[in-house]
Design a protein around this nucleic acid. Structure first.
Lengths: 137, 137
DNA sequence: ATAAATGCAAAACCTTTGCACGCCT
DNA sequence: AGGCGTGCAAAGGTTTTGCATTTAT
């Protein structure tokens, strides 16, 4: 909790209960929730928080580089407090999104450096398929 | 034109002027247009076509595997008639989306095969940065 | 002839915006 | 006092849906 407060301060953001709660959800979960999901998750503990605040806070955190936003083909965006470059794996059956912790895809941009005149800043990689749990059935 | 008609027939889709026009836009352009953009592009030649038809047609073509859909972080989806796996490059300044034709990133899933219990079907790769044109200025 | 595609309007949905209020310094 | 964050409601934008009509096979 204190750590999150410090993280916000370091990024020149005001420390509010809402911001701490939203970041904590993203930091402690592995679900890459949407704004709506975050809102629902916080209903029990923060019943007065509005959905607009969730959106505004996500935007603020994103602009400070504390979280990343992406869309895997759904009608909404998902958010991740892990801003290190790492692939996401999307299960086409249960629609869960998983992180892939690997160093096998580091420096991906180096592979294509000679084939483009783009100045690459960062990349996003998504693997689609079926997860272990869904493969069982 | 005839080729597109055959392509539709081969996929058990009815051949309509709207479908041909929409697929042709995607097939001949490199812009990865959104539904709205396709609609506007077709206004001069197909003034009676509705935006709903564009959306329905894109959904049909997508389900038949003739086009692919993706979201690079905007508030809408973009479409591509090139369904081969290939990276997309997004310019953070002019917001254009380019194809990268390379074979350097083939078999990307093989790199991570041993690090996941996912059954990978396909992948999407996005490089973000600045394009050659925007780098000049 | 039949089934499907189109066009229009309305609805649904996610996200943003405007504004008043409250909080903290 | 002042600036910023929050909450509410309304608006904005994209996408989907229902239904009558038209079209393709």
């Amino acid at each position: 909790m204190l750590q999150i407060a410090n993280l916000l301060k370091e990024n020149h953001l005001k420390v509010t209960p809402q911001r701490i709660a939203i970041f904590k959800i993203l930091y402690t979960s592995t679900e890459h929730p949407s704004a709506e999901q975050i809102y629902k998750d916080l209903q029990p503990t923060h019943p007065t928080m509005s959905l607009a605040t969730v959106y505004k806070t996500l935007d603020t955190l994103k602009k400070s580089g504390l979280i990343q936003e992406f869309n895997v083909g759904e009608d909404c965006f998902r958010y991740d407090a892990n801003v290190n470059t790492h692939p996401h794996m999307i299960c086409l059956e249960c629609h869960q999104v998983f992180d892939l912790h690997t160093d096998k895809l580091n420096n991906l941009r180096d592979y294509v450096k000679d084939e483009t005149d783009f100045n690459i800043t960062y990349e996003k990689v998504f693997f689609y398929g079926t997860c272990a749990e869904c493969n069982k059935s």
